[in-house]
Design a protein around this nucleic acid. Structure first.
Lengths: 190, 190, 190, 190
DNA sequence: AATGAATGAGGGTTCATTCAT
DNA sequence: GATGAATGAACCCTCATTCAT
C-alpha cells in the first residue's frame, strides 16, 4: 500500500472511527453526516466519496459490530471450559461489545434493514443452547424457542442498560447475582 | 369550566390522542408536529399554544404511559392471589401497555429527560420484590439490585420484541416456558 | 377572501410570478428554488408550503402556459374571418405566448412528463388543419401527418428563435414573407 | 509525436469519444465530468488536464459537430445535381448529424457561448439560398432573411423532433410530403 | 502527464417553531 | 384562543474543480 492508498485508507478509517463514536453515543438517527465530517476532519463530500451514502455508512458500522461480535463468540464457543464459564465468557464479551458500540436494539416494524446484529447474536446463542441441552447443562423440558427468547432478554437487557453494565463491572456481586439468576431463576437452587 | 375552556380541553385532548396514536405507531422521532396537527384536526400553532413544544408533547405522552402503568400495577399489587399469579398479572399488564404504546426504551447520552417510564416500572417492581422476599417467594441470597435488574431485563425484553409478544399470545407453551425460565432459570427446578 | 387568504394568495402569486420570470429566462433546470425564493421575497420553505416540490412548481408553470394558449387559440378558431387571417392570428398569439414564457420545446426521450404544451398546440392546429382541408384552404393531397409536422416546425421555429420573433415584430416584411413562405413554400405562387 | 504525446492524444480522444456518446445521449447538462471519466477510463483530473473545464469540453463537442456538418454540407453544395436533389441531400445530412449528436438548440439569455452550430448551418444555407435565387429555383420576391428563417425552421424542426425523423425514415410518403410542403407551401402547386 | 483523493458551493427538501390576524 | 402562513436551520446529497503525489 503506497502513500496514496494509505491516505485514502487513513481518511476512510478516520470517518469510520468518527461515525462509530458518534453513532454509539447518540444513535445513527441523531447523527448527521456533517457531524461525522467535522469530527473526522474531512468534508462531507469525502464521506460520500468513501461510503456512497449515510445509509451505507450506517451499514458499515453495523457490519463491523457484527464481525467483532462474531469473532469473539466463535473463539469462546470452542473454549475447553465448563459450560458456565463459557456462558460467562459470552456475557462478558457481549458486555464489552455493547459498551463499545452502545448498540441500539432496532425496533422491528420499521422498514429498516433487518436487525443483523441481533440476528448474529441469536444464531451464536442458538448453537450454544443446542450444546447445552446435549450436554445436560440446560433444561430439556423447554422449547428452544423459549430458551432463545430468555437468552435474548438477557442479552438485550445488558445492551440497553449501560448503568447496569457499569455497576456489573464495579460490583462483582451484582455480576454473579445476575448470572445466578439467569441460571437458577428467581426461585433459586433448591 | 365554561364553553371556551371546554373547547380548549377538547382540542388538547384531540391532540393528545393523535399524538399517542402516531407516537406509538411510528415513534416520536418519526412523527412531525404537522402530522399530529393534521390527525388532530387542529393547526400546528394550536399544539404550541397547548403544549409549548414538541418535547413537552412527548413528555406528556410518556407521562400518560407512566400513569397508565402505575394504575394497573397498583391494582395488581393488592390482589389477593398467589405471588406467581401476581407476577403473571404484572407481566400481562406490561405486555398490554407495551403493545399499546410501542414503548421505546430511551437511550442515555442524549439530552432527553431521564427514562421516567423505566423508572416507574422499576419502582413498582422494587416493591414487588420486597414483598416476594418477605414472603419467601424469592431467593433471599441475592441483592435487591440484582433481582431488579433481572426483572428489568424481562420487562424490557418483552417491550422490545413485539414478535415474541405475538407468539406468546398465540402459543401458551412459550408463555409458560418463559415464565418457568424466569422462575427457575436455565438449570430448571431441582 | 379575507386578509388571511389574500396574504396567502399574494405569496403564492409572487412565487408564481418569480418562477415564471426565471423559468422563462433561464429554463427550469437552471433555476434553483432558492433563486425563486429570493426573487419572490419569501423563504424556500414557503415555496414548499405552497407548491410541495419544485417539480410541482414547474408543472404549475407549464399548465399556466397551456391554459393561456388554449384560451387564445379557442377564441381565434371561432373568428368570423378568412382562413389566412385566422392563421395569422394563431401565429401572432403563438408568438406572444412564446415571448412571454420563452417556451422551451422539451426534448423527447427523457423521462420528463410529456410535452403538454406542444401537445396542446398540436391539437389546436390539428383541428385547424381539418377545417382548412374541408374548406379547400389547404392542399388535400397531403396526409394530415405531414401537414401537422409542417405546422409544428413553424410553431417551434418561432418558439425557439427569439431573435426572429423580434425582427418579425419590427419588420412587417419579414412577417409577411414568412407567412407567404408558409403558404406557398419556396417555389412561390405559380 | 513521441510515445508520451501519442498516449496523451489517445487519452484526449478517449475522453472526446466518451463525452460525445454521453452528451448526445443525455444532453451536456445531465452528464457529469465523473460520468465521462468513468466511460473514458481515465480520472477526472485527466479531463481537466486536457480540456481545462467542462465548459471547454462541451465547446469542443459542439465544435466537432459543426466541423462534421460543415464538411458534409460543403460536399453537397458542389454536387452536380438538381437544386431539389441538393436540398434533399442537405436535409438528409442534417437529419443524420442531428440523430448522431442529438443536438440541443441552445437557448439565448444564458451566458453560454453563441449557438455556433446554428450559425454554421445558417451560413451554409445562406449560400445555398443565394445560389437558388440566382438559378431561378427560389422565389425572388422574398428577402434572404425570410428565406433563411424559413429554412431554419425546417432544420430545427427536424433537429427537435426525433419522432418525426423516425417516421420520415420509415415512411417515404411523409418524407416527400414534408419536402413538398417546404417547396410549395400549404397552398400547393397551382 | 496522470491520478486518487478531497472539497466548497450549491441542490432539493423537511421540520420545529413563530407571528400577524 | 385558534389559525394560516412564513421561516431559519438543518438534512442528505451531487458536482465541477483542485491538489499532493
Amino acid at each position: 500500500m503506497d502513500g496514496f492508498e494509505r491516505r485514502k485508507e487513513q481518511s476512510k478509517e478516520d470517518i469510520r472511527r468518527a461515525a462509530e463514536e458518534l453513532f454509539s453515543k447518540f444513535g445513527a438517527d441523531k447523527v448527521s453526516v456533517n457531524d461525522i465530517a467535522r469530527k473526522a476532519g474531512v468534508s462531507q463530500a469525502t464521506i460520500y466519496n468513501n461510503f456512497g451514502s449515510k445509509d451505507e455508512l450506517v451499514h458499515d458500522y453495523r457490519k463491523s459490530i457484527v464481525s467483532n461480535i462474531s469473532g469473539r463468540f466463535r473463539e469462546i464457543l470452542v473454549w475447553k471450559k465448563s459450560y458456565l464459564e463459557k456462558f460467562q465468557g459470552l456475557l462478558q464479551s457481549w458486555i464489552d461489545v455493547t459498551d463499545r458500540y452502545n448498540i441500539e436494539i432496532e425496533r422491528s416494524g420499521t422498514k429498516q434493514s433487518p436487525d443483523t446484529i441481533g440476528q448474529e447474536i441469536e444464531n451464536s446463542f442458538r448453537e450454544f443452547i443446542k450444546e447445552g441441552k446435549e450436554q445436560g447443562n440446560l433444561r430439556t423440558d423447554l422449547s428452544e424457542e423459549a430458551l432463545t427468547a430468555y437468552i435474548k432478554f438477557f442479552q438485550q437487557g445488558i445492551a440497553n442498560n449501560p448503568e447496569i453494565r457499569d455497576r456489573m463491572r464495579r460490583d462483582e456481586k451484582l455480576s454473579n447475582g445476575l448470572l445466578s439468576l439467569f441460571i437458577y431463576g428467581i426461585r433459586g437452587q433448591s
